[in-house]
Nucleic acid binder design. Structure first.
Lengths: 358, 358
DNA sequence: CGTTTGTGTGAAATCCTTTTCATAGGCCTA
DNA sequence: TAGGCCTATGAAAAGGATTTCACACAAACG
């Protein structure tokens, strides 16, 4: 930087002002400086600038598990929006380790990050307390906070449950089961409420014994199938609260010799890429990863600019993606092929792959 | 830090030495300093330290596409090993944009990163030239460099082709097709060589027209199926050079009314998590993501410690994971159920899911 | 014409560490 | 006991930017 100043015949202060557009600089001077910058191909050092200005030009992202099919999508889009705003993204995998979490946040603070986005493993995460003792902007993504208010971006989980229920109702299902995530995670309760309340509003009831609490894993979906069928041998549809479990259930049903959607309809939540790869393709409620990531980065930068926490809860609406894993229950299948409900419902479809395959 | 020094009654130099273990410090003094550190819960600022010591405590990772099923695994494990070595991981999605790539690398340089690991989009990536003009350590991961020597970590791609071929040969297939990735990517050529050479060593021939060049995408696998069958209606097995295409092919075959593995066996490369979720589960050649990531981080840190580039090419061996998508061709299926070849081959199996499901 | 006002610029302080250089003792050896 | 060598420590420079403060000069005002 000193070299640039010398070559341009100005002081370093002026060079800094040219680079950051922080104070007006004479057009001729600016030109001289810019030329000098190009000449020595000068790159401002971000550590030095961050040190002085107290901004690391960095956003931290903490996720419970990088290689998890849905967190990927958050990582991808958070990186996208961070970069669009000239921030770097520093990534941390928390697994389920409170110490690891604390270490990571500690590291971020020491790097003068401009903010932290994090997806909590569960509601017990202690990171919030840690962060609330600092002034660092943060946003809680995906898994909201039920106990306190905090800057939050979530999808409309109640709506997700409602859409799933409405779809099954429209297809004519009357005997359905639900597989939830851990019910100490608030979004699971919200999804379940949307589902059950919509069912009862339509005069349908779901028995307590048809609600199975699980852990969002594929294997659990597979393993749950025998139990689900044992409790309710005549059910015609299962809604799982995420795709991984839904896919597990599909696999489990097939292992049991049952056909999806012929014998049982299955749908999930998330719309991970695997949905389209299966046969039948999985009907699901889409998690708006991109919109959520954008909202999270925006909120974070607003906090950062404002200099204080914004305890806002942003709820992003969702939508149903109808594919092949849901159909009317067997006793209605004749009727539906003649049109009526089934084809009406089909019109909600917007998905390319489905369009193309017909 | 000054506060810590004051409280402990020593100079800041001593505090620094205690923290970094850089010079011997009297045990009593150390104790005093540590107590002071805890008292004010002091956290060393990484920007300041990085500025002075020219090490950002940071590793950069550039990938062609974050949400791609196999790059996830590299991200995950690279983060793991970076963190184990007290480095932060800063992530960049390059897509296919040379400018984005240059920007990202520029950013990393400006942050005094200790090294850069990158997975190149294709062999044309210009990042290498850019980096070779600097002294920053780097490692090329997954997609090797054919033109020049550079620090590289790859899987044994020739072996991958060989394992796939051997497996099909052992099952009794004599009429097979292959779907490759872009043949301007060297690993695709290596995989293909391993495959074809092993076939011919066994006295089998694969026709030029049964080798289909594609692009590693799921959709391409689906779309390729009609063409593959048209060229060779009597084939009994297809090897795709990655799982995404293999899964696409499976889906396409099913859309065509064909059974996998009854009519056609399919196998891939990578062992992404989706393999176990499909029915039938996909047989594949495992990409050793974790070992490769570890090797890459290690190599990077060795370069960093040494202060110069290590033009070493590390090749990680691979292995076959047999699941359900491969079986003897139909005309041999009777024989195999009585034991012989098929069950012998099955003994190679090591996969949990498969074990459990029997 | 003297005094505000405003704009562009430079000098120096600052951000927080690490690292070099110098020094003060303590111990060992001749 | 003087000289040499360690070891533990402190003072100060350095790292590369930003930001405050001060100032010079030109235009505008009364």
């Amino acid at each position: 930087m000193k070299d640039v100043a010398t070559i341009a015949g100005v002081s370093v202060s002026t060079v800094s002002r040219v680079i950051n557009n922080t104070l007006p600089v004479d057009a001729r001077t600016r030109e001289l400086v810019e030329r000098a910058i190009r000449k020595v191909s000068y790159r401002p050092n971000l550590l030095a600038s961050g040190l002085r200005s107290k901004s690391g030009n960095l956003i931290g992202l903490a996720v419970p598990e990088i290689a998890h099919q849905s967190f990927d999508n958050f990582i991808k889009h958070t990186e996208e929006f961070a970069r669009a705003n000239k921030y770097g993204l520093i990534l941390g995998d928390i697994h389920n380790d409170p110490d690891g979490e604390a270490d990571f946040i500690d590291q971020l603070i020491r790097r003068n990050v401009d903010g932290i986005i994090f997806i909590r493993v569960s509601d017990e995460s202690r990171a919030l307390e840690m962060l609330n003792r600092t002034t660092i902007p943060y946003v809680v993504l995906d898994r909201g906070v039920s106990t306190a208010t905090a800057p939050t971006v979530v999808m409309d989980n109640y709506q997700a449950g409602r859409l799933a229920a409405e779809h099954l109702i429209a297809l004519g299902h009357r005997n359905v089961a639900c597989v939830t995530g851990p019910l100490n995670v608030s979004l699971c309760r919200d999804r379940l409420d949307g589902f059950t309340q919509t069912l009862s509003a339509a005069g349908l009831r779901i028995l307590r014994s048809d609600i199975h609490e699980s852990d969002f894993q594929f294997d659990s979906g597979v393993e749950l199938v025998p139990g689900i069928l044992e409790r309710n041998p005549s059910l015609t549809a299962v809604w799982a609260q995420n795709d991984l479990m839904a896919i597990g259930i599909m696999a489990g049903l097939r292992d049991h010799g049952l056909d999806v959607p012929g014998d049982v309809s299955v749908l999930g939540v998330d719309d991970i890429s695997a949905c389209r790869m299966l046969r039948p393709q999985l009907t699901t409620v889409k998690q708006p990863f991109r919109e959520m990531s954008r909202a999270a980065v925006d909120l974070l930068l607003r906090e950062s600019a404002l200099g204080e926490r914004i305890s806002e809860k942003i709820v992003i609406p969702t939508e149903l993606v109808i594919r092949q894993s849901t159909a009317p229950p067997r006793d209605l299948q004749g009727a539906c092929e003649q049109g009526s409900r089934f084809s009406e419902t089909r019109h909600i479809v917007v998905e390319h792959a489905v369009e193309r395959s017909r």
